[in-house]
Structure formats: C-alpha cells, structure tokens
Amino acid sequence: MLESLLTQLEKQHLIAAFALVGGAMYLSYIVSDKLTRGRVHGSAIAIMVGLILAYVGGVATGGTKGLADISLFAGLGLMGGGMLRDLAIIATAYGVRFQEIREAGMSGVVALFLGVIVSFVAGVAVAYAFGYRDPVTLTTIGAGTATYIVGPIAGAAIGASSEIIALSIAAGLFKSILVMIMTPMLARHIGLDNPRSAMIFGGLMGTTSGVAAGLAATDPKLVPYGAMTATFYTGLGALLAPSVLYLAVRAIF
C-alpha cells in the first residue's frame, strides 16, 4: 500500500511537487500569521524553508539540486527549474506599463554596470585578503561573486583551475541566497518600495533567482521591474569579467 503510494509520487513527480509546495506555503502562511503576526512575509518563510530543505537534500544525497535530488521530490527540480521559472517571471510583466520602465531606464543601466563592478571588486578584495595573489584566480572569484554563471564562464576563458571555479560558484550561490533572505528584511530601510528602485535593485544585485525570490517576499508587484534588469546582468558580467575586468586585475596585481 505505502509502497504503491511512493511509486505514484515518484511517477507523478511534477504533480507531487505542486501538492508539496502548496502544503509548504500553507504552513508558512500560518506561521507568518500566528507566530510573527504578519511581520515576516509568508513567502519569505516558505523560501527559507525551501533553502533549509535544499541543504538537507544536498547533504543527504551529495547531489547538486537540493531536495530535488531525492527521487521522491524530483518534481521540484522541474517546477523550480529554469523553464517554468522564466515563464512565470515573464508572466509577471503582463500589465506593467512601459512608461514606468522607460522612466527608470537610464538608472537601470547605470545600476547594471555599477552592480557588476562592485560585486567583482568585492570578490577580488576578499580573495586577496585570504591570500590569493594570482590574477586568474582573483578574476575568477570576483566573477563568481557577480553571479554563479559568470564565474565559470570567466574562469574557463582565462584558464582557472577547477577548484577555483567551484569556489567562484559557491560565492555566487551564497550571493543569491543572501539576496533572497536579506531583501525582505532591508527593503524598507533602502526605499525598495517602488518600480524605479526595484529596477535599480535588480541591476545592482543581478542574481535573477535571488532578486526574483527576494522581491516576491517583499512585494510581488515589484517582481517584474527587478527581474527585467537582473536578466541583463549575467550577460554583462560575462562580457566584462574575462575582458576589461581581467585586464584591470592583471594591471594592478
């Protein structure tokens, strides 16, 4: 009996994920209401629960996809994977007025360049403080601190070792997790409550998953604005890190 239920859950993995996430969100909203009196948003709690479960799943299986590596929860990987995530992010743009995007357009572009450079410099500085002196290593860690996609792209382009590339991916993963957790906590203090600042926020942070989850837990209305600029960040980082920024690091160190 129980075995056939488990078999069904594994077979209908996407449907099982819908039910699981629905249940997790229901509990998270109860916790938000009763324990924090709505002060911590339900979706922020649900995202934290997701991250903790992802850690447990990763440690239990040694895989790379968190809880989705446990075959019973494989559907989470499909539900939260790039394909459906992008579809849902694009759907949030429906009904947005282009005028609001155009008004913040220039600030968004400035934020993008500044965001890539600030994260890169932060990564390089911390790597330097930990004793790394080789420009290739410094650049790769800096690029990974921008996003975990830029790290491997830059590292492969300039010939970094695989341990350093793994380290750069870890930096990018931490960044996206930190943005998910810190955004709802800091939003009010930095004026993150309107489309314009959401676009600047997306450009500065750049991690699409972090921005998407952080804004969802702050105010879902802001999601399309932040996501819009954030999706240009990885491309810009991949453009700048192995070229201009690498040359700058080599000139300095």
Binding site: G50, G66, R85, A213
Partner: peptide
C-alpha cells in the same frame, strides 16, 4: 520560486 529555492545547491 519556493520550488526553485528547494532545488538550489545550498550544500
């Protein structure tokens, strides 16, 4: 997004 968080490589 919650499903995405649960399938991140947090470990």
């Amino acid at each position: 997004v919650v499903a995405m968080a649960a399938s991140q490589n947090v470990a």
